[in-house]
């Protein structure tokens, strides 16, 4: 069973024959979308270019084993986003924080430990500041990778739950759980910046 269109099937056959023109067509036709996906994850042009290059190199190597279970574009997209996440991992320059320290604690009766009702709603202007965006990426990079990957794909890249599950090869339920935990942990990390 193949998910490929006729056009993609023909392109895949040409690629598997080693047709150089087909390789060039693949890079030129799909490169822009893949670059945009990598840039969304990484937020830096040079890193996004590295991710796209890494992705195509991986895809070229794996072409023989690709049998069209998904669309060619979907397959390339998954490889690219994973290449971008690999670069994100290498880019980490802060120690990973323990989730136990970042999630809210509760007493046995269900009340939260040390609640501080001090958060003032943020203005759009403050949310959209360039330094705010840098801060958010920095704080997300302090989360354990299982959680930083999910919040990066869901909230920053804008993938839905199913797409995120496919890229990370996990169940949609795990995406939902990790996303909630990741947002809670990020919220804790932001408390020192935004709580009054």
């Amino acid at each position: 069973m193949t998910s490929l269109s006729i056009e993609e099937s023909e392109l895949l056959s040409a690629l598997k024959r080693g047709d150089s023109d087909a390789y060039e067509r693949l890079v030129r036709e799909y490169g822009g979308r893949l670059y945009a996906a990598a840039y969304r994850v990484l937020g830096r042009e040079t890193d996004a270019q590295d991710a796209v290059q890494d992705a195509f190199v991986s895809a070229f190597r794996a072409l023989d084993t690709f049998e069209g279970q998904s669309m060619l574009s979907t397959w390339l997209y998954r490889i690219t986003v994973n290449a971008a996440l690999q670069i994100l991992r290498k880019r980490r320059n802060r120690p990973e924080r323990s989730m136990d320290d970042l999630l809210p604690g509760f007493y046995e009766d269900g009340h939260r430990k040390n609640p501080k009702p001090t958060w003032s709603p943020l203005s759009d202007e403050r949310v959209q500041q360039e330094e705010t965006r840098e801060l958010i990426r920095e704080k997300i990079s302090e989360l354990p990778e299982d959680f930083s990957n999910v919040i990066t794909l869901r909230d920053i890249s804008g993938l839905d739950t199913e797409q995120t599950a496919q890229v990370l090869d996990i169940e949609p339920g795990a995406v939902r759980t990790r996303l909630h935990r990741a947002r809670q942990a990020l919220r804790t990390l932001l408390e020192e910046e935004y709580a009054t």
Binding site: G32, A36, Y39, G43, R112, P115, L122, V127, S157
Partner: peptide, 30 residues
């Protein structure tokens, strides 16, 4: 809990805003 909800919603806004700044033209050539 009201305060927690406000801060949770702001956290989502902050993360989504970070992504919205990193959108580029998918049709632009490499």
């Amino acid at each position: 809990c009201r305060d927690y909800m406000t801060s949770y919603e702001d956290t989502i806004r902050l993360a989504r805003s970070t992504g919205s700044d990193a959108i580029c033209d998918e049709l632009a050539p490499l």
